[in-house]
Simulated scan of single mutants.
Amino acid sequence: MTCDEQTFTMKPGEFQALGTGEIAYVKPMTSDDLTTLFPQAPRMRPGLNLWVLLNADGTPIMLSDSRETALANAAEHQLHTVALH
């Protein structure tokens, strides 16, 4: 680090909001875990493979049985999708 560089500290809430409304990610899940993100969701057959579109802060946006549909929804709302590793 040189003398010209600066370090910025972000508060937890500021860091959590980073990218919200601009960046989203698509995550696979099963119907068994559905109520963790969607508490009001109707009961579904166990073991179904689903895809969830999440805002950068982890807030769920939509649920689908197709990855392509979740990605299309992100594009429709001008959200940039990123991969998680």
Rank of each mutant, 00 (worst) to 15 (best):
A74M: 01
E76I: 01
R43C: 09
M44V: 12
L63W: 01
P60I: 00
S64D: 11
L53Q: 04
G13V: 05
G47F: 13
S31M: 08
L63F: 00
T36D: 13
K27C: 10
A24P: 05
T9V: 11
R45N: 11
Y25G: 06
P12F: 05
R43H: 13
L63M: 09
D57I: 00
H85Q: 15
G58R: 06
T69V: 05
L48D: 03
L50K: 11
P60C: 03
H80L: 14
K11T: 10
R43Q: 15
E5W: 06
A24V: 03
L34A: 02
L71A: 10
L54A: 02
E22A: 09
L48V: 08
M44N: 02
Y25Q: 09
E22V: 04
Q40R: 14
P28D: 09
D32W: 01
D4I: 09
A72L: 11
H80N: 10
A74E: 07
Q6T: 12
P12R: 08
V82S: 10
Q16K: 15
I23K: 08
F15L: 15
I61G: 03
D32N: 15
A56S: 15
E68Y: 02
F15S: 11
T30W: 01
T36S: 11
S31Y: 09
H85K: 13
G47L: 12
L84Y: 08
E68A: 12
P42I: 12
K11M: 10
T35C: 05
D32V: 06
